[in-house]
């Protein structure tokens, strides 16, 4: 007798019983989520960059026209400079101060856990809230910093923190550093704690001074973590938006406009969705470069590799 079709298991059953089918099913929710909220917006953004879409008007494909336009736009290049300056200075400061803080917290301090918790506060506070606090600190008339310096007789009139291009740049960097240190410090502290105490003791017996123990034992062992932490830190800083938008909105005279804020400014209040998207897309090469540098330059260490 031939096989009876009725005895074949149903399609659903066959999927549910196959290893790959089941795997696919389990993956589906995450895949749908990523496609809807990551791939689609990214793809749409890249597409918009090639169109002349405005708010209220569907655009047409115009090729690289937006990019040619940006290439001739001094404000765009200023924002590129600002972004690189902001990212470089803030990252270096966050790394230096974060590492220093992590080393301090790694020692035996009284109330160690209390300090570790306190350190996290700037990271926990919503960015807008801390930005508002800094806005007040940097206020042109009521700044507490100006007030203090005047009290001490160091300056005669309030500093116009956010009104002058260069003081504004340094001011937003200061706010960003304040906010970013906890992430670096706590991550590096976690890294420091994976380094066995006996390595330091062995180095001390081998005749290393505290500075040599730091440079020849602690720092090399920390580099893998530093690479990861600083990649993230650079990415966060490069794409920063909230802080700038609350503090200066890119002013004065575009002096603190980052690529992210300029992109938003052109796209939403300015209505030029295509151009805004093009600015955002222009950030991608920089971010990729940062990731590749970290991956190839810092994370691949021979002593960590598995086989020989």
């Amino acid at each position: 007798m031939p096989d009876q079709p009725a005895s074949r298991p149903s399609l659903w059953r066959r999927i549910a019983e196959s290893r790959n089918g089941l795997g696919f099913l389990f993956m589906l929710p995450a895949a749908v989520f990523l496609l809807c909220f990551l791939t689609y917006p990214l793809g749409l953004g890249v597409w918009l960059g090639f169109t002349d879409t405005r708010i209220g008007r569907p655009g047409e494909f115009i090729g690289l026209e937006n990019y040619q336009w940006l290439n001739d736009d001094p404000v765009f290049w200023l924002s590129v400079f600002n972004t690189l300056f902001y990212t470089t200075i803030a990252s270096v400061l966050k790394f230096g101060l974060g590492l220093w803080l992590a080393l301090l917290l790694n020692r035996h301090l009284p109330a160690k856990n209390f300090f570790r918790a306190i350190i996290l506060l700037p990271w926990v506070v919503p960015t807008v809230l801390s930005a508002l606090a800094f806005w007040w600190i940097f206020d042109s008339q009521f700044s507490i910093i100006s007030w203090l310096l005047m009290k001490w007789g160091l300056i005669s009139q309030p500093i116009n923190f956010l009104g002058d291009p260069w003081t504004a740049r340094w001011s937003v960097i200061a706010a960003n550093v304040w906010r970013g240190i906890p992430f670096v410090a706590i991550s590096l502290l976690a890294g420091l704690q994976t380094i066995p105490q006996s390595l330091n003791e062995a180095a001390a017996i081998d005749g290393a001074t505290p500075w040599q123990r730091f440079t020849k034992v602690t720092l090399p062992l920390l580099t893998p973590i530093i690479a990861v932490v600083m990649t993230f830190s650079v990415l966060f800083t490069f794409t920063d938006f909230q802080l700038i938008y609350v503090l200066t909105r890119g002013g004065p005279v575009n002096a603190t406009h980052l690529m992210a804020t300029l992109s938003f400014q052109r796209a939403i209040p300015g209505g030029q969705l295509g151009e805004g998207a093009a600015i955002a897309v222009a950030m991608i090469p920089f971010l990729l470069a940062a990731i590749l540098f970290s991956f190839f330059g810092l994370q691949r260490r021979k002593w960590q590799q598995g086989a020989d």
Binding site: P196, S198, L199, E201, A202, A203, I205, V217, P220, L221, R301, W303, Q304
Partner: peptide, 11 residues
């Protein structure tokens, strides 16, 4: 000194 976990410098 020879340590229990050897304390060799991994790098």
């Amino acid at each position: 000194m020879v340590f229990q976990n050897y304390a060799l410098y991994p790098h």
